[in-house]
Design a protein around this nucleic acid. Structure first.
Lengths: 183, 183
DNA sequence: AATTTTGCTTACTTACTAGTAAGTAGATAG
DNA sequence: CTATCTACTTACTAGTAAGTAAGCAAAATT
């Protein structure tokens, strides 16, 4: 992939995660990269193509995360590494892509909806398998169904990045502490 | 408040909660209400004024919720009523206003940011006081700090409405069950 | 009864949106 | 050394955005 193309995805991702899919234009990206509007259309004919590319790259990153943490790490360590992703987002003052795109799901291009749904399934089933593994080996002792706990953890992490922006308090920190307590 | 004015706020709220603040225009509202674009500018000169009005009305509704549930209800019943708000949102296939506006917080008009921050503080301190009350009277037996638990509950509810749209599974139901288990 | 105010509409402006068509300089391949 | 391809730029289109100015009918006020 060309240098410019991946730079466009970088900028688009940041804009999506700060302003949402409808909150930026090709112009904004062009300005950052000092290229012309039409150069972006060359790489991504429609804005939907760009949106899809951003989600696809995120899925690939997650896929790499999964295979990297798969070998010689226990469930507890894997969960910790997953949570680290959110701490990094917080430091960059960004919400996660799901928190950015999910709220407007129904108004997104169909191809983006498809990618986003697939991504959510991947994350949810990964989290479920980690929790199952940890519980089986008595590392985790939480109450309730595994899927319920998985959805609760994912949800609280996702929203804490959103609330961090609104409150300027460390909601993520509070949420992580509570996860550690209840897991 | 005139009939048209409150109808405009109704439509704007629904549009914000499905498409986000940058995902609709005065034209969209005008089309729904069969009025002209400029009629909306008469009631709300700028789009920011309309956005502020939507948040303010939501805050008033929450304020009413608080005073209504304040008399003759225990902490557990109050929490249940709070959770009911999210179940109603789910039935209408809407995310909450915080989930809709929070992700793009930094790109919102300053007046909207101010309203949104105030709203989040109101909700968080209400939840904290309810949890404190319930724990003191031994209705709640959750582990960990009260503020941590408050932020975890609010976050998981907020995000479950978002994930409901993406997954078409009952994330909110899973999250509510887990709250009941851990509280 | 005359005047002002309310709640709009008509008609418009300026700026931005996504997207396209045609051209071009430099690298690559035959 | 010529032809094609890559990665753009220039120049444009049609549509939509927020917002404004002027007008007007009906209701409320004096």
């Amino acid at each position: 992939m060309s240098d410019t193309k991946s730079k466009i995805i970088n900028v688009a991702e940041e804009l999506i995660r700060t302003r949402g899919y409808n909150g930026f234009s090709y112009r904004d990206i062009a300005a950052v990269l000092s290229i012309k509007n039409a150069a972006i259309h060359y790489h991504f004919p429609s804005k939907a193509d760009l949106g899809v590319a951003v989600i696809q790259r995120t899925r690939e990153n997650f896929s790499q995360f999964v295979s990297q943490s798969d070998r010689n790490m226990d469930a507890s360590a894997k969960l910790k590494k997953f949570i680290d992703i959110y701490s990094e987002s917080q430091q960059k003052n960004l919400v996660c892509f799901m928190g950015a795109l999910g709220p407007t799901f129904g108004s997104l291009p169909k191809e983006m909806q498809q990618e986003l749904s697939s991504a959510s399934q991947e994350i949810r089933s990964w989290m479920t398998s980690i929790l199952a593994e940890g519980k089986q080996r008595n590392q985790f002792t939480f109450q309730g169904a595994i899927v319920d706990q998985a959805d609760s953890i994912i949800s609280s992490l996702l929203a804490s990045l959103i609330l961090n922006k609104v409150t300027s308090e460390d909601i993520l920190g509070n949420v992580i502490r509570q996860i550690d307590k209840t897991i």
